[in-house]
Amino acid sequence: MNDSQIWVTLLKRSAVVISMFIAFFPIYWLIATSFKPFDEWASWPPIWLTDNPTLQNYRIVFFPEAAREFAAAQQGSLDYKVSGSAWKAFQDSAIISTLATFFSVVFGTLAAYSMVRFRTGGDNYPFQFLTVRMMPPIAVVVPIVALFSVLRLSDTYFGLTLAYTAFTLPFSIWMIRSFIEEIPSELEGAAMVHGMGQFRAFLTVTLPLIKGGVLSTALFIFILNWSEFLFALVLTAGNVITVTLQVANYVSASSGKLYGVQAAMGTVSTLPVILFGYIIQRHLVRGLTFGAIKR
């Protein structure tokens, strides 16, 4: 390598380092703030790395006593939404996300199998599901609220699970469809020659082969459900609460001065999805492009 090439390489690597810094900085700030004591939350100049790390913010998030204690000590008022424990939010999010993921993947697999192997509904049928992902959810939220109020589904686990299932179906159908398409139907044909029914051939031959893909799809959809905000916001009224709602509640409580607490909640709520995200990193591109771009 000659000198100019070395300079170019150096420049390129520096650009990478700067990009890494920009990508990481907001997350760093979130984590760093979550360990700051109350008086450093909004000090000027801001504290970049606290000398007095504390777990107090996490205690406020998870233990109502700590929250009440904090409210009393700081003469602030924590409204009722954030004075409770965030455990409830984690629990509700876990229940709803898991259920909705399960239904979405099972329904999606069945539908995808039918579309690939029987061409059910013709070539345009899968697009019907895709259009769901294209419309802004806010546009259907108003009638869903109206419908759910009649059906008494507002603010229930079932209602939110139903909404999440429907809005992740396009992903599960299109992703799993792309996995099934990679498995030649001749394999199932071979099993059928031995007297197996077509659906059993799918279950015993193809499904094990796309197991990894289906699992990735499930994790991907779990991430979407866990991260969902808009439906949780409009379809609940206090009985059901998700982690994203809890984050928003901290941000809006006391007009956004609960930095440490909201950072603590932000940090713990996003950890599971970061973990899942890296587990399925290989399939992220496929998921987010509905199987159009594969690795």
Binding site: A23, F24, W29, L30, S227, V251, T270, L284
Partner: peptide, 17 residues
């Protein structure tokens, strides 16, 4: 790719701060 992994509400929360 870390930013795309985190919950959008949390990303907004970080930018809020």
């Amino acid at each position: 790719i870390l930013p795309m992994m985190i919950i959008p509400v949390d990303a907004a929360n970080a930018f809020f701060m």
